[in-house]
């Protein structure tokens, strides 16, 4: 899934997968912190895959 999305132009680093058990609270915190840091570092103006107002020609 990741491969095709990135193949069609999603920036690498926007999509993350992880396997966390409900007992692994510390892992959850670590992963979420890491993901938010990585995503914040990306260009916020890049709004691909976000639905915007229709273009008017």
């Amino acid at each position: 899934m990741k491969n095709l999305l990135e193949h069609t132009g999603l920036e690498p680093g926007r999509l993350h997968f992880s396997w966390i058990s409900s007992a692994e609270s510390t892992k959850f915190v670590d992963v979420v912190t890491k993901i938010t840091d990585e995503v914040k570092a990306l260009d916020p103006a890049n709004k691909k895959y976000v639905k915007t107002e229709p273009k008017v020609d």
């Binding site: 990135e6 193949h7 069609t8 132009g9 999603l10 690498p12 691909k48």
Partner: peptide, 18 residues
């Protein structure tokens, strides 16, 4: 055809499929 697109940057890929 896939290898050709794989060589592009993320922005170019996005525009290509757009």
């Amino acid at each position: 055809s896939v290898t050709k697109v794989e060589a592009l940057s993320a922005d170019e890929k996005f525009n290509y499929f757009e």
